[in-house]
Design a protein around this nucleic acid. Sequence first.
DNA 1: CGCTTGCTTGGAGCGCACTCCAAGGTTCTA
DNA 2: TAGAACCTTGGAGTGCGCTCCAAGCAAGCG
Lengths: 154, 154
Amino acid sequence: MTVMETTGTGTDLCAGPPQQNRRPDGQDRYTISEVVALTGLTAHTLRWYERIGLMPHIDRSHTGQRRYTNRDLDWLDLVGKLRLTGMPVADMVRYAELVRAGDHTYGERFELLRTTREDVLARIDELRGTLAVLDRKISFYADAGRALASEGSR
Amino acid sequence: MTVMETTGTGTDLCAGPPQQNRRPDGQDRYTISEVVALTGLTAHTLRWYERIGLMPHIDRSHTGQRRYTNRDLDWLDLVGKLRLTGMPVADMVRYAELVRAGDHTYGERFELLRTTREDVLARIDELRGTLAVLDRKISFYADAGRALASEGSR
DNA sequence: CGCTTGCTTGGAGCGCACTCCAAGGTTCTA
DNA sequence: TAGAACCTTGGAGTGCGCTCCAAGCAAGCG
C-alpha cells in the first residue's frame, strides 16, 4: 500500500481550498507569464526556483518553453506559504528533495513541518511582544501630541 | 513647555520595564564588550549602527574608547524590538534622525510607529494563515505515518 | 516578409544586514 | 613591566534571495 495524496506520483499536496483562475486538469498547461500573473512571482524567480531545485523539472512545449500544471501551481502555493513563515530557501529545497525522494521520507517531512510550526508560534509571540512596546510608545506620543496641541490652543 | 520624557535631552524613551544587569545612572559607562554581553549584538554591529546613524554619537573615554550609558542601552532595546518587527534598518535610521531633530517631530514619529504597528498586525495575521496550512499538512503526515505504522505491524 | 512580443540560457549584479580584516593603540593582571 | 586581552578605524567581504543582462529562438499578425 502507498498512502494516497491527490493523484499519486510524488507530490505532497493534501488539497487546500480549491484555487481560483485555474483551468481544469487536462487543459492545465500554463506559460510562465500566466504563472507570473497567478502567483505574483517574477519569471526570473520562477526559473531560479527551478534551477536551485525548489521546483520539480517543469514540463516543456515542443519548442522548449515551460508549461506549468495545476500541480505545479499547488506546489508554488505551498512554497509561498513556507516563504511567509521565513523559512530559508535552502530548507524549502531540502523539503522538495524529500518529496522527490518518495514516501519513505514522510517522517522527515513531518519533523521539518513540525519544527517550522514551532518557529511560527515563537515568531508570533515575539511579534506580540513588540506590539506591546509599540503600543506603549504610541500612546506616549498620542499623549505628547495632545499636550502640545492644548498648549498651542492656549 | 517641552513634553518630558526620561531626562530631557532628545531621547525618546518612555520607560519600559526596568532593565536587569545595569549599573545605576551616574556609574553607567559601559565598554563595548559589556554592551555586547548585555544586548547579544556583536561589537561590529554596534560600531556599524553608530556609523550609519542608527545610534547617537557614543561618549568616549579620554583615549577614544566608547563608553555606553544606560540611555544608550535603552535605545538599543528599542532598536532590537523594531528589528524584530522586520522594520528595515533604513527606517530605523529615519526614526533616529527624527528623535535627534527634536520635539517638533513627534507627529512624524507617531505616524511611523502607527504604520509599523499595522505592519506587525498584518504580519501576525499572515503567520496565522501559514499556521493553518502547516497544521493541515502536519495532520496529513501524522495520519500517513499512522497508516504506514499499522501496515508495518501487520 | 517584417515586426512585436514572449520565451530560452548561463552567468553577472544588486541590496540588505551584517561580518571581518589589518594595523595599531590601550587597559588589565601577574 | 611584560604579556594577554581589549579597543580603534576605514574599507573590504559574505550570504541570502532575488534581479537583471545579452544573445538568440519562436509565435502571432498585417
